[in-house]
């Protein structure tokens, strides 16, 4: 059985170590916060906050307190606020240990594409280009294949890149793959999924 969204998030949370400052992207990466357990993890929101808390209770939403996905959130006892220049200063300056992000495509060299589909969907890169260029470790959480059954782990990305050679680890519904200098390396398979299943579902070179 391939992993579902929550299992992928739970697996990604295992990559986080006590004391880390971490940035979580929108979508499945946001769910990672639910699985950090007892680990002392400080979440950064790149719009200017360290120590992001859970969503507010109904009626307690504050328009001045949102995350990078523009969702209402809450603060914690450890929270600090700062402006966008300082926020990206700590990202660019390598102070954030890891970023967990979604992806449209990843290449066997660790190239990442997640900000636009020319002529179809223009979202913008937001802070993703800064994050992948600056943080210690880039972990991508994504479906292994698109809805047409085509691999999203490719020899070369076809979409405009967010960063070149930036991805360290890929967590998909089928398993966990590390980006090696020669290609992708299978670290773990989802329950009931074999390494051969992963190879069959992957266009990128697996070593």
């Amino acid at each position: 059985m391939p992993w579902d969204r929550n299992q992928m998030a739970e697996r990604a949370a295992q990559e986080l170590e006590d004391g880390m400052y971490v940035n979580l992207g929108i979508g499945i990466p946001t769910l990672v916060a639910n699985y950090v357990g007892d680990k002392d993890i400080t979440l950064q929101s790149e719009n200017g906050m360290l120590g992001m808390g859970p969503f507010p209770f109904e009626g307690e939403e504050d328009p001045d307190l949102i995350n990078a996905g523009k969702q209402t959130i809450t603060e914690l006892a450890r929270t600090s606020y700062f402006d966008s220049a300082q926020s990206f200063g700590m990202i660019r300056g390598g102070k954030i240990a890891a970023a967990i992000l979604g992806a449209m495509e990843v290449s066997e060299k660790g190239d990442l594409a997640n900000w636009m589909i020319p002529g179809k969907l223009v979202k913008g890169m937001g802070g993703a280009m800064d994050l992948v260029a600056g943080v210690g470790r880039v972990i991508v959480v994504m479906d292994h294949q698109n809805k047409h059954g085509q691999s999203k782990l490719l020899k070369e990305c076809t979409l405009p890149l967010t960063g070149k050679g930036v991805v360290d680890l890929i967590i998909t519904d089928l398993g966990v793959l590390e980006v090696d200098h020669k290609g992708l390396h299978i670290v773990e398979c989802a329950d009931g999924v074999s390494a051969d299943d992963i190879r069959a579902a992957t266009e990128a070179r697996i070593v």
């Binding site: 859970p54 969503f55 507010p56 209770f57 109904e58 307690e60 939403e61 328009p63 949102i66 996905g69 523009k70 969702q71 209402t72 959130i73």
Partner: peptide, 9 residues
Amino acid sequence: IEQRTVRKR
């Protein structure tokens, strides 16, 4: 508020 997101009590 652009994305009002809450949790249940």
